[in-house]
């Protein structure tokens, strides 16, 4: 295990990726996957998450900068054998059975996991003989997860593994992912669900419009964004409140104004100074959702 962890499983160093002349998907991004941890790349749609994944899988080359997997080119045959990937595939061949899909992908790898182990790890028991086209959305995602892990990879890259799943199916997928982390594997997971990053990740990297804007443990990310929510009754208009320093966002809520802020003290002082009739003050810790909004505030 230690020798695997001595080198960084995957990294991007000062990577810029542009498509054509106008679209810049990533701007000077540096990112490294901590070994043996679940790293979440968190960001809204179009932030550049999938581009980062493609660079690390050798499906795209950086316009400038370096992408490395286990200290080598991501396209190296050895790297392809040590990396498993779950991508957003629009259509998987529907006439093959679950068992057949898994067995086919297993033949690609030099040292695959035993079939029964893959079935158990991906939660496919009982549906091995079903055709892919007959599966539910959650089951389909689990098959794609099985294809990602069947080669017993040291690095697992999951691009939005729970997108489009209902709550129950999402939690099921979390269980599968957690059990894989427990084996000491390095994982990069992209998501735009904060709850998912919070529930799964050892480490969160927040990306927005092609730039990395925050990095740390889920708790640190929450702290970084401070994340306090203030509700007050005030004579000030919404625009006046928004103009105050430290206000990340503000919205109307039935005669009161709701404010998300990185410093509740500063905001309250400023409000009091401008509105002596300030009333019904209520301060709560913001959820990760608010922290995320604060971090990616435009």
């Amino acid at each position: 295990m230690t020798n695997i962890h001595a080198i960084v499983p995957a990294l991007l160093a000062n990577v810029t990726k542009s498509y054509g002349d106008n679209v810049i998907a990533l701007r000077d991004v540096s990112l490294d996957i901590h070994p043996g941890e679940l790293n979440a790349l968190l960001g809204p749609n179009g932030a550049g998450k999938t581009t980062a994944v493609k660079l690390l899988l050798g499906l795209a080359a950086p316009t400038s900068g370096i992408a490395r997997v286990f200290n080598a080119d991501p396209r190296d045959a050895a790297n392809r054998a040590r990396t498993g990937a779950m991508l957003q595939v629009a259509r998987v061949p529907e006439t093959l059975r679950v068992r057949e899909h898994v067995k086919l992908f297993s033949t690609y790898y030099p040292d695959p996991l035993p079939f029964e182990q893959v079935v158990a790890a991906a939660g496919l028991s009982g549906i091995e003989s079903k055709k892919f086209g007959d599966l539910s959305g959650g089951q389909k995602q689990r098959v794609l997860f099985a294809l990602a892990i069947c080669g017993n990879p040291d690095l697992l890259i999951l691009d939005e593994p729970t997108v489009g799943l209902d709550v129950e199916a999402r939690r099921g997928m979390w269980t599968q992912i957690r059990s894989f982390v427990a084996k000491g594997k390095s994982i990069l997971l992209t998501t735009h669900y904060l709850e998912e990053a919070d529930a799964l990740a050892d480490r969160v990297v927040v990306i927005d419009r092609g730039r990395i804007i925050a990095e740390g443990s889920p708790a640190e990310i929450k702290a970084r964004a401070a994340g306090k929510r203030i509700r007050v009754r005030t004579r000030l208009s919404l625009d006046e409140v928004r103009a105050l320093p430290f206000v990340a966002s503000a919205s109307n809520g039935g005669g009161t104004i709701e404010i998300t802020t990185t410093s509740s003290d500063e905001v309250l002082r400023a409000l009091m100074a401008r509105d002596t009739s300030l009333a019904d003050i209520e301060i709560t810790s913001a959820g990760l959702e608010d922290a995320f909004l604060a971090l990616t505030a435009r």
């Binding site: 499906l59 259509r91 790898y109 080669g151």
Partner: peptide, 17 residues
């Protein structure tokens, strides 16, 4: 055309196939 356009070939390209 289908497997190229719908991401299936891309997934296969990440494997050692």
């Amino acid at each position: 055309a289908g497997e190229r356009g719908q991401g299936w070939l891309e997934l296969k390209r990440t494997t050692p196939m």
